[in-house]
Design a binder for these strands. Structure first.
Length: 495
RNA sequence: GGUCCCAUCGUCUAGUGGUCUAGGAUAUCGGCCUCUCACGCCGAAGACACGGGUUCGAGUCCCGUUGGGACUGCCA
């Protein structure tokens, strides 16, 4: 496919949210796949709600996700004259007309229609005004909007959507819609189409919520004598109550930024989002960037809306479990080199980072990260659950101390004794440590598990973790010995 | 209300008339592994919204019902 040009046109009224990110991802994938061009166009014509910070946040979100674009960001507001010119052209060619009906009149008619339980469409009061009449009204200083003159009579707008197939909208179901406000500023339906024409967009890939105004835009394209792009509408992302997700009702949970802050790997998020409404017919769900670009196709997009299974107050999942599972999958399987920078960033943010981790302790750091990553879900876990490996101060869970240490009175002596046995070891490796501890267990005639679990609790404050001998080797002799010697203090503290 | 779109396990989905006693993923439960937890492996439970048609045969086609969604703005 030659010359594909697609666009992502966010309106800068907040951060980049999940739905927008997904739209951007689909456009990006399609551009990548076809060696086409992705354009970012900021639709900032709603001056009241648009902010500069928002533009920054959206672009920042895209960059973080790894979505690259080829042109832009363009700003729609810079092209207002294009939009006005198009409206003028439509006026001149008789495809649009000036409407002097006031807000009040229209509101009254709408209200009446509502009472009659009737469908309300603009009644065309101004559609057939004579030139003199229009001139007179203008001279009187009456404000007017510009409406598109929708063909009347039978028939309708027919087009084939790549995802939804052939769609027909009857002319009679389309009212003469406004394309320019009374203050002269163009409306979305016009400016979006005009911009797409100017940007030579070949494929409009956007949310299904735009399905309804596609016929209007097609009418505009045709009236302007322009070639139609291909439309592909994608299903919407809903919350578990089947409501369209939005910044307003869901807050930060639906912001890309939120996932970044909660320790998501950008590619894991992309991988999760692309699966919301798109799939291949084989069973693959995990894709590298190249694999995804290769596998992606508009035809694989689903028609039904999908539910983003956000779990607001679930103690176990802070978001869709599948998203977390994909993130965890990448965390434990991605090349270690690629993971390290994320871990470093987390440790730095938590004040646990030491330059030596990238210097003389690099090998140790890498093997430690590799040791613990298989049971973590987000990069945040390295700074929380991983604390005992990287710092001297870490939380001791009381429940764990009770269960794995205090329950066995003898550990009060055994753990310090273990320290005595470990301290002289010339080599502090999983093997040598195991030998020493199993030897001690035999000598004391206790099950090794008691010593092992007690040691894990004393050294990490946690009941779960990697194999204890690996843990000890990772934490290091000095810290291990010290922590084991401090074990008796738990008995005093708890008494 | 009107117009349009949609409908398979809790969630994401495969499925384009027979190979579907409906497959995978995730979540849940059980087992194996084992010093614990995770990973991994094995297993269980779990869905074609309903009703009519068409057909030798329907998850797959048609109609209706129900349910959900979008749009219905001088927002984008």
């Amino acid at each position: 496919m030659e010359g594909v040009r697609v666009r992502f046109p966010p309106s800068p009224t907040g951060y980049l949210h999940i739905g927008g990110a997904r739209t951007a991802i689909y456009n990006w994938l399609f551009a990548q796949k076809t060696a086409g061009t992705l354009i970012v166009r900021i639709e900032d014509t709603d001056a009241e709600r648009s902010t500069e910070e928002s533009v920054g946040a959206i672009l920042d979100g895209l960059r973080w996700l790894g979505i690259t674009w080829d042109e832009g960001p363009y700003f729609q507001s810079a092209y207002a004259s294009d939009h006005r010119q198009a409206a003028q052209k439509l006026l001149e060619s008789g495809h649009a007309y000036k409407c002097f009906c006031t807000h009040e009149e229209l509101e009254r008619k709408r209200e009446e229609a509502r009472k009659r339980k009737d469908d309300y469409h603009y009644d065309g009061t101004c559609r057939n005004r004579s030139a003199e009449e229009i001139g007179r009204l203008e001279d009187e200083g009456c404000a007017y909007v510009i409406r598109f003159k929708v063909p009347r009579g039978p028939g309708g707008v027919v087009h084939e959507d790549t995802v939804y197939g052939i769609l027909e909208k009857k002319y009679r179901d389309i009212e003469d819609f406004v394309i320019v406000r009374s203050n002269g500023s163009p409306l979305y339906v016009l400016s979006n189409a005009v911009d797409d024409i100017r940007d030579r967009i070949t494929h409009v890939i956007r949310g299904q919520d735009h399905l309804a105004n596609t016929p209007k835009q097609i009418l505009i394209y045709e009236a302007l004598g322009e070639k139609l792009p291909r439309f592909a509408h994608m299903p919407l992302t809903l919350d578990p109550k089947k409501r369209k997700i939005s910044k307003r009702t869901h807050g930060e949970m639906v912001a890309v930024q939120y996932y970044r802050q909660r320790g998501f790997l950008p590619w894991a998020l992309v991988n999760f989002l692309v699966l919301l409404g798109w799939s291949t017919s084989d069973d693959r769900e995990i894709f590298s960037k190249d694999e995804l670009i290769d596998a992606f196709s508009l035809e694989g997009i689903n028609r039904a809306n999908s539910v983003f299974d956000i779990r607001k107050d679930d103690p176990k999942f802070f978001t869709d479990p599948k998203a977390i599972s994909i993130n965890a999958h990448y965390l434990r399987t991605m090349p270690l080199d690629e993971l390290l920078p994320y871990v470093q960033a987390e440790l730095e943010a938590a004040g646990l980072w030491s330059p030596s981790f990238a210097g003389d302790k690099k090998a140790w750091f890498e093997s430690t990260v590799d040791l613990i990553r298989s049971r973590y879900h987000t990069t945040k876990d390295f700074a929380n659950l991983g604390r005992p490996y990287f710092a001297d101060v870490f939380p001791m869970e009381e429940k764990v101390v009770r269960k794995n240490i205090l329950k066995h009175d003898n550990l009060k002596e055994w753990l310090p004794l273990m320290a005595e046995r470990l301290e002289p070891l010339a080599e502090f490796t999983p093997d040598s440590v195991e030998q020493a501890i199993r030897g001690l267990a035999t000598e004391l005639d206790v099950k090794a598990g008691i010593l092992i679990n007690g040691a894990r609790a004393a050294v990490t404050g946690q009941a779960a973790g990697p194999g204890l001998f690996d843990v000890l080797a990772a934490v290091g002799k000095q810290r291990v010995v010290q922590r084991l010697r401090e074990a008796p203090s738990f008995y005093e503290a708890m008494e």
